[in-house]
Design a protein around this nucleic acid. Structure first.
Length: 426
RNA sequence: GGAGAGGUGGCCGAGUGGUCGAAGGCGCAGCACUGGAAAUGCUGUAUAGGGGCAACUCUAUCGAGGGUUCGAAUCCCUCCCUCUCCGCCA
């Protein structure tokens, strides 16, 4: 959520910066609303001050011996009642205005960082670096879903029976590999000072609002209609809310968490895309990195959290490239985002496997998460990054590890977790 | 799900209608004392929003929301949460 003061004082700046995301908007109405709200607040509190003064005077007179029903006291009581009525009217107006204002503000995305490259779509994203040597496209290379089918690593048809399309049931070595990857990633990050979290994956509306998914993206999440609970689309949601409403002492920052959760997404509007395999599912596993930091640390933290995600790919010997998203392609809450794209030799393409964003104080304001340094309390900054999406990592391992004999060679780092050096041809 | 108890400041804890944003204690910070420290003493120590260059000041907040009243931490209603016991359950 954006700062109301900024809206009151400098809405032009907001328009200009959101313009970089490709939005055209006119905030004069909202600005007016914000100013009206402040005026109402002032009027109301002045009236309340007068009411408080009268209340005290009545108390003093009665204490001083005046009869509670004397004309003098009665006059004050009448005045008090009159003020009370006026306050009630103003309060109602103010509340309505405030609610409307908040509702509108919640739909505005974060302002992009000055460092984020301008652009309209993913076409304009900027490649920062490449790592590893991608194997060339050879005729015999298969796509990961072909490999998985051949090796019996998952069930797709039967998953439709259990749930519906875009669900997968991992089987045998496939299930084992998924589990190995989760543990490997958690251990890798845990060894670097991340505290492991296993949060609820049903989250309430306040949590989804706090991290930015609501109110605008309700159609992207699964909802349990009877309970005000939703299936979390990413661990970012519960982990943000882990500290919702808190004031955190500065010397405890940064707080770094690593959370494994299943993630659930309705993938509305992606019909026909990535329909085979592990790339785009309604339910997938992800190991998420999340930082709460002091504002002056967040730029550096963004480099670090991205490096921590990259370290997983490097440990797994998976070639990747790092790109920076342009303003037109960035997510709702982000001010700046790096995506990591892993090389899939079977598909012959780089595919997103991690997204690392710094959100400034945007989520912190929505979630009321502050830090206290000495006497000053201020909103802190939040960052999130996938470290990594587990299903896509499995896809990458299958495609990159393909041997001519049909088996899959696994990277050395994973062997202790998987318990074998390769997945043998069936 | 049933029965009972309870939710007050960083923490403990007093407070059943009137200068209560809230006694007292602990903790924390500053000052004094000390060679230094402990102990002791004094002072200060919530959050949000509004106004003011500032000193400062106004409003709201005692789980949340509503009500009674000139006036509510205190009385009434609804909800939420925590704890204990019972039931159910992995």
């Amino acid at each position: 959520m954006l700062d109301q003061r900024l809206l009151r004082d400098n809405p032009e700046l907001i328009c200009e910066q959101l313009g970089r995301r490709g939005m055209t908007l006119d905030l004069t109405g909202l600005q007016l609303m914000a100013r009206q709200e402040r005026d109402l607040e002032e009027q109301r509190s002045n009236l309340q001050a007068e009411g408080n003064r009268i209340g005290k005077e009545v108390g003093l007179k009665i204490k001083g011996g005046a009869a509670p029903n004397s004309p003098e006291v009665q006059a004050l009581r009448d005045e008090g009642n009159r003020i009370k009525q006026q306050v009630a009217v103003l309060e109602e107006e103010e509340k309505a205005l405030e609610a409307k204002l908040r509702e509108e503000l919640l739909t505005l995305p974060n302002l992009p960082s000055p460092d984020a490259p301008d652009g309209r779509s993913e076409e304009d994203n900027v490649e920062i670096k490449r790592w590893g040597s991608p194997r060339g496209k050879e005729d015999w290379l298969e796509e990961h879903w072909q490999i998985a089918e051949r090796l019996g690593l998952f069930e797709t048809e039967r998953s439709v029976r259990i749930a519906q399309s875009r669900f997968v049931t991992l089987m045998g070595q496939g299930a084992r590999l998924e589990r190995a990857l989760i543990n490997f990633m958690l251990d890798l990050h845990g060894g670097k000072g991340y505290r492991e979290v296993l949060p609820p994956i049903l989250v309430n509306s306040a949590s989804l609002t706090g991290s930015g998914q609501l109110p605008k993206f309700a159609e992207e999440s699964f909802r349990c209609a009877d309970d005000d609970l939703w299936l979390t689309p990413t661990a970012e949601v519960p982990v943000t809310s882990l500290h919702r409403g808190e004031v955190i002492p500065a010397d405890q920052l940064p707080l770094k968490y690593v959370a494994y959760t299943p993630c659930f997404r309705r993938e509305a509007g992606s019909y026909g895309r990535d329909t085979r395999g592990l790339i785009r599912l309604h339910q997938f596993n992800k190991v998420e990195l999340y930082w709460f930091v002091a504002p002056d640390q967040s730029a550096e933290a963004h480099q670090q959290i991205t490096a921590d995600a990259e370290a997983v790919l490097e440990a797994l010997e998976l070639p990747y490239r790092k790109i920076e998203l342009c303003t037109g392609d960035m997510g709702f809450s982000a001010t700046r985002t790096y995506d990591l794209e892993v090389w899939l030799p079977g598909a012959g393409a780089y595919r997103e496997i991690s997204s690392c964003s710094v959100c400034g104080d945007f989520q912190a304001r929505r979630s009321a998460i502050r830090m206290k340094d000495g006497k000053t309390t201020q909103l802190l900054h939040t960052l999130n990054g996938s470290g990594l999406a587990v299903g896509r990592t499995m896809a990458a391992l299958l495609e990159n590890g393909q041997q001519i004999d049909g088996s899959i060679k696994l990277p050395a780092a994973l062997v202790p977790y998987f318990g074998a050096e390769s997945i043998a041809a069936a």
